[in-house]
Design a protein around this nucleic acid. Sequence first.
DNA 1: ACAAAAGTGTTATTTCTACACCCATGC
DNA 2: GCATGGGTGTAGAAATAACACTTTTGT
Lengths: 249, 249
Amino acid sequence: MIDFKTDSFQPGLSVDCVIFGFHNNELKVLLLKMKNLDFWALPGGFVGKDHGVDEEANRVLESRTGLTDIFLRQFYLFGNVGRTSTEHLDSLEAQGLISSDNVSWFRKRFITVGYYALVEYSKVKQPTVDDISERCDWCSINELPEMMHDHLDILKKAHETLKKELNYQPIGINLLPQEFTMPELQALYETILEKPLDRRNFRRKMLGYEILINTDKRRTGVAHKSPNLYKFDVKKYQKAIQGGLSQSW
Amino acid sequence: MIDFKTDSFQPGLSVDCVIFGFHNNELKVLLLKMKNLDFWALPGGFVGKDHGVDEEANRVLESRTGLTDIFLRQFYLFGNVGRTSTEHLDSLEAQGLISSDNVSWFRKRFITVGYYALVEYSKVKQPTVDDISERCDWCSINELPEMMHDHLDILKKAHETLKKELNYQPIGINLLPQEFTMPELQALYETILEKPLDRRNFRRKMLGYEILINTDKRRTGVAHKSPNLYKFDVKKYQKAIQGGLSQSW
DNA sequence: ACAAAAGTGTTATTTCTACACCCATGC
DNA sequence: GCATGGGTGTAGAAATAACACTTTTGT
């Protein structure tokens, strides 16, 4: 149940995080299932009067994933009147998920700041529920459950933003484990861009950026020819994305 | 003086507009000078409880410029604690610009949503002051006056965003008069990008997009060889920027 | 006539796209 | 040994970057 001193928070303001991970060649987001209800929500929180909005987004990210120092970017403010669903609030209230002291605060008009985060899937050992959810799971962005309020719109917009920023943000370095194969990196790009890329051209272009280091190791144990393992040259990566990698995927 | 029923507004939330215009080959922004004070502010406003944030930004834009149906985009939420300046608020209050009933409301922590607008300079016949300003003027972004709160940061971020979106947004069509010359269009691009472009390559590339119509008229009366007048093919322009014009200026 | 800006083409370089065969591994 | 995915090169097309002279106009 949510029960807190509402007067220490900015009224009508929340943050919501779209936390992206990459696993089994699928782009996933971390979602919360509301207790005893059939809809899910983005991990979110409220903004303390003495806390910056970015700071609160980081706090949300850390409470759900246990991770700190994660790539996290604000991408849009959702400020329409009526973006929250009265029906969903009714359900939350009916399930006793909102303290009666907080009900009127929750029912007010809310705007929310959207953030997206890129995390290494395997680093999230224990996705943690919040007070009103019963599960915290990775969901493939191709099969999303019913979502609270306008959270599906928020998620869609986050994905759009990710696509646009692919060449300007350290996408790979945050979503992949430290060592990875070229096909894995390509699959990540294909998943984000939602289109297939040519294997040879992709490899040539990636290597051309000179941001990868060949570890001279190979991934063994998996089927077929064992692929080479690469890692990012962090310094060069940082420098390269400053000006944006070259365009047109 | 500002004096209104604060309880019909979202507390701690404002919108600020960076209104860009282009004149004399310079990129300009519309700013307000506070009455009897030596600092300027971005045109801004508050968000009514029953009004969308975008809607309020449009209202601000219309009240300062008299224009409707203008290109206006949200670009960032400024949510740091301490982004407003106590000293500036002191000054406003000392000048009697804030009604005593509103003072405590104004002194609270505020976040603001940044919007940028692109307007045709000559269409703004009468930049209109608001209740606490004495002038509303175009300022070149190269010589900006002292600004209130974090408004300079907001302006800088707007300019950055404009640069990035140059190939994705109908920049020219909104900032230039209906008919314009190729050198004018080039100067606009050079100003936004803050770097010189090759005249021949620029022309070839622009014409290659097939979004311009040669009017077969010339600008006369100005010195030197009279340049050709072009206008945008609106439909083609709209279509072209959907996928983004090709990159790498 | 002259100063200043507008108009115009070509070439070398780079980047992009499309495409097919061999190799290594686990089963 | 075979099915599967990993690795590799080349050639044609397109885009980009660099560069100089002529034309028009107002003064």
